[in-house]
Design a protein around this nucleic acid. Structure first.
Lengths: 216, 216
DNA sequence: CCCGGCATTGTACACTTGTACAACAAGCTA
DNA sequence: TAGCTTGTTGTACAAGTGTACAATGCCGGG
């Protein structure tokens, strides 16, 4: 799957080389695939290695251990989501309402709502509770998320000549992200009750009425 | 902790006796305690037995295996929550708005928001994804939950002489339960961002504006 | 009083887990 | 080509997993 040899020797001590990062990315990809298919319980070092097409022992050569690999996978997935949101918002142009709508819709469209990714995400949620490192990453992700939501809402309000107190904006952001998380969660646990299109509509309506501004 | 001997021999084949149920309840309690303290990973048969003050081998005498015990624990916890909701709603009297408010408030008050119980709940969420039996139980719980929410909202609307289509009511119930679940989730993952009082307020405001009726 | 049937114990078993490590392969420098 | 570094393998190891089971204790009914 990969040419084994490194093309260049490490130049600086910390930038461990490009091929090394690519190999680490392979491990992360294999880990996410295993989490999606087998859950955290079934995501063993051996299965990850098998998925990556390498020997189990190689893991400790690229990561300090399984925990570090899982944390890296969580970081990667969070970054991927974040980038997806940024892209969709940017693609919506400059109108604040369109940007908020694009963000909400992005929460229910690929690659975010790939059922496999949802399963992975729920697994990470359960890890947050007990693993301090994963919790630290979550705290960052969640803070970024709330900041993003608050910014989008603030822009919409400003465009309507309405001022919102900072604290109200924060509460609003918590409520909106909770709604999206909750819809996401249930959609992940059981996709037979409602589908992504319904989830999108529910979120749009609830958020629009809450901030008192119709969203296109 | 328990008198070991059975007080009465089994009368009928299926009602296996009272003491037997009590013993099973002990196991369930120990399992929930372990889930809260160590997470699912750390909830081993040996630790459960230690918590219950019995030998590990006794588990298979009361349950077909660890999976069955965990499923029983999930069922127990869901039932406990459900009962808590019923009580709080009933205690609120007959006014539909007061009843809805009581339900929302109950979501953020003891025993529901005991941090330990939240940790347990998140662990179960991650199990739903991969365990069919747990998923089945969740489907029941979630259906009951939505029915309850829909009923409360419908009563409020009726008291305001407003009719809501069945499908709109269902979507409303999904949105409200998603909001509550999302707030619950974040409150569980990281209690430093907002507290239960804020969560309660956010939920009340968001739901009240959504259904267009102020909630006391 | 003894005895049959439970509840309960402690342990053994087969298996899986994450990690460590000696050995081999392969390319670059000199 | 020799030597060195690095990637990679396969396996071994200790620890821990859920479960099965013979043995023990203890009670109530005859």
């Amino acid at each position: 799957m990969h040419t084994p040899g490194p093309s260049l020797p490490p130049e600086t001590p910390d930038s461990g080389g490009d091929s090394r990062d690519a190999r680490r990315a392979d491990f992360v990809a294999a880990t996410l695939a295993c989490l999606a298919e087998y859950g955290y319980q079934g995501t063993t070092v051996r299965r990850i290695a098998e998925r990556a097409g390498v020997a189990p022992g190689l893991l400790t050569h690229y990561f300090s251990g399984k925990d570090a690999l899982v944390a890296a996978a969580y970081r990667t997935l969070g970054g991927r989501f974040s980038r997806h949101f940024d892209e969709q918002i940017a693609a919506a142009g400059k109108d604040p309402k369109a940007r908020l709508a694009a963000f909400i819709r992005a929460s229910f469209r690929s690659p975010n709502l790939d059922p496999d990714l949802l399963k992975v995400w729920v697994n990470f949620w359960s890890l947050i509770v007990n693993d301090p490192e994963i919790r630290r990453i979550h705290a960052e992700n969640y803070a970024d998320y709330r900041t993003r939501v608050a910014g989008l809402v603030e822009a919409v309000m400003a465009s309507e000549d309405r001022q919102v107190a900072r604290r109200d904006l924060e509460m609003l952001a918590i409520g909106i992200s909770a709604l999206l998380d909750g819809l996401w969660l249930e959609l992940c646990l059981d996709q037979s009750v409602f589908d992504t299109a319904s989830g999108e509509q529910i979120a749009l309506e609830m958020i629009a009425t809450r901030i008192g501004v119709p969203i296109p």
